[in-house]
Design a protein around this nucleic acid. Structure first.
Length: 901
RNA sequence: GCCCAGUUGGCGCAGUGGUAGCGCGUUCCCUUGACAUGGGAAAGGUCAUAGGUUCAAAUCCUAUACUGGGCACCA
């Protein structure tokens, strides 16, 4: 056994644990992932989608980062100046919500702690999460430049956020105003439109009669939210609705409240829905709000930010919106106003973080004017400066940007970037206990620190805006804030704009679109020219993974069970552009097996290593058929892998690598190389080993982006043989295709050999002959036109002997009257005495049936004059060849069957 | 409601006009020194349905069904 093997204690099976731990720390210590601007190379930079600091990484993160690492390593090995910047996101509402749950379990709350103590607690806790997450990224093998670690809420990023805010303010693209916002009662904050999800819920359509003040019958309105009637200020009907013509302009008496409200005509109303009459509550419904503006209706707020009925709600004041609904229906019924109740499933808005039903509420909030920013982003897409893979996401992206509303960026939470606006208490006549979100027209000063004096009145008492910015505001700056923007530094110059963003489709609008808008606005360029959108990882049944369903998969557990490389392989080989991944543990088995196969290939190479001073490439005359064949296959594999990577088809690249290593290199080449490696001819042994080790080293480099650990481990032993040894694989070069020209004769010979071997193996199995028993001899007769193939077998009889396990090969001048195995080029005869031919003959009859149906199809095709005249000539001649081959095979099969019977 | 994607052997997926492939699983044979996380053999699909274009369709077109997703929501 080779001494390398002994030193390394190469187990028969690859054991990932120790190997991975070793390389994780070795890579970290060596600093090989760090990037230093190198203007001589082409830059390739990307920024990590920063995970939220809410806990640990899930399998989706594993997918996202494996793809990025694959790219980063592959590009670095192709000579690019790669920078992959890491970091985490403070995560605003999401993170605060998690902390609030923790506090609740401790019997306290953020209210009890107060803002400062709460924020401190958050910082302490999120620091831990950050550590966990970064540790997990390292464990996953990510070649991130950890010296650049950033956090969306650290000092450098705070500077970026302030500058962005200031510029928006100076350019008059920010405003504070009263709007109907999406309010989450549980989170106690406003949300932007895209943070609201819609979900079908069971509900009712209640029909309520509103009588005329004059005593007339009035009309019946239909509503799904009866509790909002307390705030009704009108009833609307369609202007053309004949049923209600007489009522337009009349006054109705609002039941329970006794308020007089007008009947208005508005084209928004759909006459065919419900009763055709709509109650209008401008303070609690977006459409009603719009109607209220058109008809100058007053806005009566009847639901408070905590979800209770306000003082405006008369006798219902103080009770929750749910209770109010029950009570109001009871009262309407008992007072005879409720005409009908029908079941009516409808979509309700829910908070994307806590699933609580959204309440549209009026309040003072900060908005970014998005129209111009969106136009910029649309233009970039139109001009091809920004591309999305797969392309099919471009249309939804376009549509969303085209129709977006202003972006509500203020959040009534404590965890986030504080809004850098200060209000002079004197100028604004503010007191500190004011209900801030109801106060309009505040005059503010934008400043990072508390201003010394008020520029207007010179007063020195200020109150900072109590809100924080939407977490996506800082995320939108990420591709440049990571590099220190608004500083002008070398990193920005070199690595910005970034090349590609890899992310899932669930945040195309929340994040991708906003980065494009802000990037273009603030830096004048797209922040990344391409986005690669991958799918989400689902469970075995295709369900989204979620903690509440209990179907989440912990990537770390998977890594420990099967190895990190197996997980990476499994994820990548399923990452088809635009497709979700159905995850099951079975898929990791293939990855583990593949890792092991590679491991054992290397183990085999080491066991058969030849002591060589230097690894010279063998001369053409030293190479034999198998060498030329495998070098040529290797060349093809490298080319396809490169192509697949270039079009971001990572799964395709993984397929190609798998196929080459396993189905070509191991199954055929290694078996043939054994003849020389384990033979007596030292020169031949050297040649075979040279080819073997050259390709193996190339394969290891090719596979490194996919499976960094096992390849690095193997390389650490094999690199002595590498012509261009590197300290680590990431610093080596992605292999270049060897210059080998395989002759057509050689290619055909190998194909014929493989066919012959398969055919003999099939025969062996059909006869029930144990794989351990060798044939005494195989006699080969070649059909006409197969001289090349016959000569190939003659030149390399050892190939067929070793692969088909036979001791002697004879070449016949004429066919015998029975055959044993039939291939397109040969009849192969073996001694069949003492074997049960029945099974063989059954099998061959099946084969005959198959070939007859082939012949039918082919002859039908060839007898069609249209086909002959219209199809491509190469295709026709190809078909003719197939037809001839099939006929020949049929004839030979029939002969054999006749001899058997 | 509008839009997009998908529908291929038991499961997960390749395959964009010229005789249907892969992985996992299944059945049978085999522990001969790289690997049983292995080797060999085999079974298993009229490529959702109906039309159309074409000499030729899993592949292009149309419609339908189902699944998933995006957007917008009618109170």
């Amino acid at each position: 056994m080779n001494e390398n093997l002994e030193q390394k204690k190469w187990d028969k099976a690859y054991v990932p644990k120790d190997v991975e731990d070793h390389w994780v720390s070795s890579w970290a210590e060596s600093g090989i992932f760090n990037s230093y601007p190198n203007f001589k190379k082409e830059s390739f930079s990307l920024v990590i989608p920063p995970p939220n600091v809410t806990g640990a990484l899930h399998i989706g993160h594993a997918l996202n980062n494996t793809i990025q690492d694959f790219l980063a390593r592959a590009k670095r090995m192709s000579g690019k100046d790669v920078c992959w910047a890491p970091g985490t996101d403070h995560g605003g509402i999401a993170t605060q919500t998690v902390m609030e749950k923790i506090l609740k379990a401790e019997n306290t709350s953020r209210g009890k702690l107060g803002r400062e103590a709460f924020t401190n607690r958050m910082e302490e806790w999120t620091a831990n999460c950050k550590k966990t997450i970064l540790g997990q990224l390292k464990k996953l093998g990510c070649s991130l430049d950890f010296s650049r670690e950033a956090f969306t809420l650290d000092e450098r990023r705070k500077t970026a956020v302030f500058h962005a805010f200031k510029k928006l303010w100076d350019d008059d693209r920010l405003y504070r105003g009263e709007r109907l916002v999406n309010w989450c009662i549980r989170c106690g904050t406003a949300l932007s439109d895209i943070e609201v999800e819609h979900e079908e819920r069971k509900g009712n359509l209640w029909h309520i009669r509103y009588q005329e003040v004059s005593g007339g019958a009035g009309l019946v309105v239909a509503t799904t939210r009866p509790e909002t009637m307390l705030g009704d200020t009108a009833v609307a009907v369609h202007p053309d609705d004949k049923r209600y013509q007489g009522l337009i302009g009349k006054k109705l008496r609002l039941p329970l409240m006794n308020r007089e409200i007008p009947v208005i005509a508005d084209a928004f109303v759909d006459s065919s829905f419900g009763t055709g009459a709509v109650k209008v509550t401008p303070a609690h419904d977006p459409n009603d709000f719009e109607m209220g503006l058109r008809h100058q209706l007053s806005r009566i707020k009847v639901i408070s930010p905590v979800g209770k009925i306000t003082e405006e709600g008369g006798v219902y004041a103080g009770i929750s919106r749910e209770e109010a609904r029950k009570k109001i229906i009871q009262d309407l019924e008992s007072q005879g106003f409720l005409e009908k109740t029908e079941p009516h499933p409808h979509a309700v808005g829910i908070c994307y973080r806590c699933q609580e039903i959204i309440e549209p509420l009026l309040s003072q909030q900060w908005f970014v004017k998005t129209h111009d920013l969106a136009v910029g982003a649309l233009k970039a897409l139109e001009e091809g400066k920004f591309k999305i893979h797969p392309h099919s996401w471009e249309k939804p992206y376009w549509d969303w940007l085209s129709g977006m509303n202003d972006w509500c960026v203020s959040r009534q939470i404590w965890w986030g970037h504080e809004i850098p606006v200060w209000y002079c208490l004197k100028c604004n006549a503010l007191s500190r206990d004011v209900s801030f979100h109801q106060v309009p027209n505040l005059k503010g000063v934008v400043s990072r620190e508390k201003p010394a004096t008020c520029p207007i009145c010179g007063h020195a008492e200020f109150m900072q805006d109590p809100d924080v910015l939407d977490t996506w505001f800082s995320s939108a700056l990420w591709p440049f804030s990571v590099f220190g923007w608004p500083e002008k530094n070398e990193d920005i110059e070199r690595y910005y704009p970034t090349k590609i963003l890899v992310t899932g489709y669930e945040i195309i609008y929340l994040w991708v679109a906003r980065m494009q808008m802000m990037g273009l606005y603030l830096t004048g360029t797209v922040p990344f020219s391409e986005a690669f959108i991958h799918g989400i990882v689902r469970d075995k049944k295709g369900k989204k993974m979620s903690k509440s369903l209990g179907n989440v998969v912990d990537p770390i557990q998977m890594m420990e069970k099967y190895g990190t490389d197996a997980l990476r392989f499994s994820l990548i080989s399923q990452a088809r552009p635009g497709k979700d991944i159905i995850f099951s543990e079975d898929s990791l088995i293939a990855g583990r097996n593949f890792t092991n196969k590679l491991w054992n290939t290397a183990r085999f190479a080491l066991m058969n290593a030849v002591n060589l001073e230097k690894l010279n490439s063998p001369t053409d005359s030293q190479l034999e058929a198998a060498d030329v064949w495998i070098l040529s296959e290797y060349q093809k594999a490298l080319t396809s892998v490169r192509q697949e990577i270039d079009v971001y088809n990572f799964a395709g690249a993984a397929d190609q690598m798998y196929e080459f290593l396993w189905d070509k290199f191991c199954d055929w080449y290694v078996e043939l190389a054994k003849l020389r490696l384990q033979g007596a001819d030292l020169e031949a042994k050297k040649t075979a080993f040279t080819v073997l080790i050259t390709i193996l080293i190339g394969v290891i480099k090719m596979l490194h982006p996919l499976m960094p650990f096992v390849t690095e481990e193997i390389y650490s032993v094999l690199k002595n043989w590498d012509a261009e040894p590197a300290d680590y694989l990431i610093n080596s070069r992605f292999p270049l295709a060897p210059e080998v020209k395989e002759t057509e004769e050689n290619q055909k010979g190998m194909t014929a050999l493989i066919e012959a071997v398969a055919s003999l193996r099939s025969l062996r199995s059909g006869l029930g002959i144990s794989p351990g028993i060798r044939w005494q001899s195989v006699s080969v007769w070649s059909k006409q036109g197969s001289e090349n193939e016959r000569n190939f077998l003659k030149d390399y009889p050892q190939y067929l002997k070793t692969l088909a396990q036979c001791d002697r090969i004879e070449f016949l001048e004429a066919p015998l009257n029975f055959a044993a195995a039939i291939t397109p080029h040969f009849n192969l005869y073996v001694p069949l005495q003492g074997h049960d031919f029945k099974q063989v003959s059954e099998r061959l009859k099946k084969e005959l049936a198959r070939i007859e149906s082939d012949i039918n199809k082919l002859s039908q095709k060839l007898s069609d004059p249209n086909y002959i005249s219209k199809a491509a000539p190469e295709d026709v001649s190809e078909t003719r060849l197939l037809y001839e081959a099939a006929r020949s095979k049929k004839a030979r099969l029939e002969e054999f069957l006749k001899a058997l019977s």
